[in-house]
């Protein structure tokens, strides 16, 4: 098994211990921790899992490294950062929780992590929701919740000029 990470259609920013990858095709952005970043950089279609494990640094045995590489490939596959035909295996081969239970703190440092977001459109990022749907076009965002993790507007204006959806009034 010699996996290959995607190289095309991505904008990549190298940080000291992380990697930010912007997928231009899907408008998703990913933050890879050190282990996931090492596997992503190293997976060029010529390296085996053992070879990729060797990139993760000293202080871990072979089985630990290969397990971490498999898990990283699973996460990269979920994030669609591997070539379409690259074998990745499911991320659940070795869940983070069970890995932490089985191994000590040292191996926990090897655990790969990938955080992802869907990048907003300009309108979504800049939107200011309206409170009154009277006269607004259907679909106009309205009645936002008090949260910065929710979508820009929780509800939308309906054709009958009411604001619908899962309303939120404190």
């Amino acid at each position: 098994m010699k996996p290959a990470a995607r190289r095309n259609g991505l904008v990549v920013r190298d940080l000291p211990d992380e990697l930010i990858v912007y997928d231009l095709d899907r408008h998703q952005a990913h933050c890879l921790n050190r282990t996931a970043a090492s596997v992503f950089r190293g997976a060029d279609g010529t390296r085996s899992l053992d070879d990729l494990g060797a990139l993760l640094g000293d202080g871990f045995d072979r089985a630990e490294r290969v397990a971490a590489v498999r898990m990283a490939l699973g996460l990269l596959g979920e994030a669609q950062l591997l070539e379409a035909d690259a074998p990745s295996g499911p991320a659940s081969d070795l869940s983070r929780r069970s890995a932490l239970r089985r191994a000590g703190l040292g191996v926990a440092l090897l655990l790969p992590a990938v955080a992802s977001i869907v990048v907003p459109t300009p309108a979504e990022a800049a939107v200011t929701c309206i409170k009154d749907c009277t006269g607004q076009l259907p679909g106009t965002g309205c009645n936002c919740p008090l949260s910065n993790t929710a979508p820009p507007c929780d509800n939308v204006c309906f054709p009958d000029e009411t604001c619908g959806g899962a309303g939120f009034c404190p």
């Binding site: 211990d17 992380e18 930010i20 952005a29 933050c31 992802s116 977001i117 990048v119 907003p120």
Partner: peptide, 13 residues
């Protein structure tokens, strides 16, 4: 971390 911060801010960019 710096990467996490960039990702969070990108969601508002």
């Amino acid at each position: 971390t710096r990467g996490q911060a960039m990702l969070e801010m990108l969601a508002h960019t």
